[in-house]
């Protein structure tokens, strides 16, 4: 499925939990987080390959969102370290994580409702002079920068087919449009890695294909790394280069999409959980926040 003409960067990577990758952008070691005695995340080792799409799957409550929160600085682990592009990110606050190039979206979209679509986009650009209190008072100091980033935002809005909503309040967008806006907005940060938390949840099926195309575009056209959480296995198998399965906070399986569906540990995790569907058959889209 991957149109990448280059040699497969995962060549020879064995399908086992915690396996080392040839060129990881993110390396997670020994990260643990518990809530009131229940272990939500307990990852011994995990590497995310650079420039590829990694799907993160697992039954409800497996700790996928919690892991996202920990890695992006929105939650603090009990212990553990992780490096992103060679930099130690443990203990780094969320806004600095984003500035270092690791940008996330949220399961429940966080479009800024009472701001226009364009304002949502403009906000996301980093290093704006006009965001400092005193320069903000002198438009001549930030106007050129503002014009440049508005132009960039306009291009992205065209690409994500949101240009006709440019000056509408983001709160008026449909669920799928909000997901698109969140993704486009994340790109304004110019991240090297995008972490998408259930990008297809609650999206009208007509928009799913276009969203999938955008996700693949991140990898193919811009060379960005993508990690995404998704429950729809068709989607996962369609666009992922690599799949990681979490259960009860731990990585229980890793592998290519073709291998993972038949992995006994994965089937067991799904069958053993309260949901009695095997992953391949699962179609249900979840809005519920995983703990």
């Amino acid at each position: 499925m991957s149109p990448d003409p280059r040699p497969d960067p995962l060549e020879g990577t064995s399908a086992e939990p915690g396996v080392a990758k040839a060129d990881p952008i993110l390396t997670v070691s020994d990260v643990r987080r518990s809530f009131g005695g229940i272990t939500a995340v307990d990852v011994d080792h995990l590497e995310i390959p650079r420039g590829l799409i990694t799907g993160l799957i697992g039954p409800n409550g497996a700790g996928k969102t919690t892991l996202f929160n920990l890695l992006t600085g929105f939650d603090t682990p009990d212990k553990g370290t992780w490096t992103f592009a060679g930099e130690d990110l443990a203990g780094v606050p969320a806004h600095l994580v984003a500035r270092k190039g690791m940008v996330r979206t949220f399961q429940l979209t966080k479009a800024l409702a009472r701001m226009t679509v364009m304002e949502n986009m403009q906000l996301a650009a980093v290093g704006q002079t006009g965001e400092r209190l005193l320069p903000a008072l002198l438009p001549s100091l930030w106007r050129p920068q503002e014009d440049a980033l508005t132009e960039r935002a306009d291009e992205l809005l065209v690409r994500f087919k949101l240009d006709h909503m440019r000056d509408q309040f983001a709160g008026t967008l449909s669920g799928g449009q909000k997901k698109l806006l969140e993704m486009a907005r994340a790109l304004m940060v110019e991240p090297s890695m995008v972490m998408l938390d259930e990008p297809m949840a609650g999206v009208n099926p007509a928009l799913t294909q276009s969203l999938l195309g955008h996700v693949k575009g991140l990898r193919d056209n811009e060379g960005r790394t993508v990690v995404f959480v998704e429950h729809d296995m068709d989607v996962v198998f369609d666009i992922s280069d690599w799949v990681v399965c979490l259960a009860q906070g731990a990585v229980i399986a890793e592998g290519r999409p073709s291998e993972i569906g038949s992995n006994p540990a994965v089937i067991d995790a799904y069958l053993g959980s309260s949901h009695s569907e095997a992953p391949v058959q699962r179609r249900k889209r979840h809005e519920r926040r995983a703990s």
Binding site: L96, A98, K110, A111, L112, A113, R114, A136
Partner: peptide
């Protein structure tokens, strides 16, 4: 732009944080 950040915090401070 300063005011834009301020208003984004009112709307959703986690979103603002996720954008750096």
């Amino acid at each position: 732009p300063w005011g834009r950040v301020i208003r984004s915090i009112r709307e959703d401070e986690d979103a603002a944080r996720s954008l750096g």
